[in-house]
């Protein structure tokens, strides 16, 4: 059994070495780097905007601001229960009929922010809610105003609680950018699809695709794992 497995894996490696066109890979690597740059670029803008939208919505829902709070709630349900792909289709192919013409980039950023905003909101709001009532009350008791309680008591505690969730969201949003090719953005998926279509270099294109995403996402994954462990440690230590 073990021997069989050995031969088997040997065969696969042999096949891999013979079948994979390294010259081709060398040629197309710059394309992948460029595409990865574009993916990261769009993801970064989307993440920053999601952060802003998420924080704003979280505060609105946390303070239960009249009128705005239910509207925010509706947005969050809408965003959480629809796929980004469909959101993009709607933005890119349907809106021009209403006279709203968005470029592919605009669609991607709006779509990613629409999606990411609700995920960030969820993370931030639940982090805010982990700060207990008694903490807020003791802030009030030493004469802090509502804003000061938020600034000095609630936020610092909520921030550290929200870091693992935030990292998970960042990873999720970078992954979600993989559908951007549907609106003709030349991202990693687009390049891979192109190479498969043009040269039939399926293996090479797919390996490079997987490796690219791995390089993009592994650091985020490691950071988020680290953050989570640290948080757990910190919580065991506190009151």
């Amino acid at each position: 059994m073990a021997a069989l497995f050995y031969i088997d894996s040997f065969l696969i490696i042999d096949y891999f070495l013979r079948a994979v066109d390294f010259e081709f890979i060398k040629q197309v690597i710059p394309l992948y780097i460029e595409a990865a740059g574009l993916t990261l670029h769009l993801a970064l803008i989307g993440i920053i905007l999601s952060f802003a939208v998420g924080l704003l919505c979280a505060l609105i829902r946390y303070y239960k601001v009249p009128v705005l709070s239910p509207i925010t709630g509706f947005y969050i349900e809408l965003s959480r229960n629809t796929p980004l792909l469909i959101q993009l289709f709607f933005l890119y192919f349907a809106l021009p009929n209403l006279g709203i013409k968005l470029s592919s980039f605009q669609c991607c950023i709006i779509g990613l922010t629409f999606l990411g905003g609700s995920y960030m909101e969820e993370t931030f709001r639940s982090a805010l809610e982990t700060v207990s009532r008694v903490q807020i009350e003791s802030g009030q008791c030493i004469g802090l105003s509502g804003l000061q309680v938020m600034r000095y008591v609630v936020l610092p505690q909520a921030v550290s609680v929200s870091i693992p969730g935030f990292c998970a969201n960042v990873m999720f949003l970078i992954k979600e950018t993989s559908v951007f090719s549907i609106v003709a953005v030349a991202d990693l998926m687009y390049v891979a699809k192109d190479l498969i279509g043009l040269y039939y270099k399926t293996d090479e294109a797919l390996w490079l695709l997987a490796v690219s995403y791995f390089i993009l996402l592994l650091p985020v994954s490691i950071i988020s794992g680290y953050a989570e462990r640290r948080l757990r440690y910190a919580q065991f230590g506190s009151n």
């Binding site: 990873m171 992954k175 979600e176 993989s178 559908v179 998926m189 891979a192 699809k193 797919l206 695709l209 997987a210 995403y213 791995f214 996402l217 592994l218 994954s221």
Partner: peptide, 9 residues
Amino acid sequence: IMPQLVLLF
């Protein structure tokens, strides 16, 4: 880590 779309491809 892998986007589902990459896995699908």
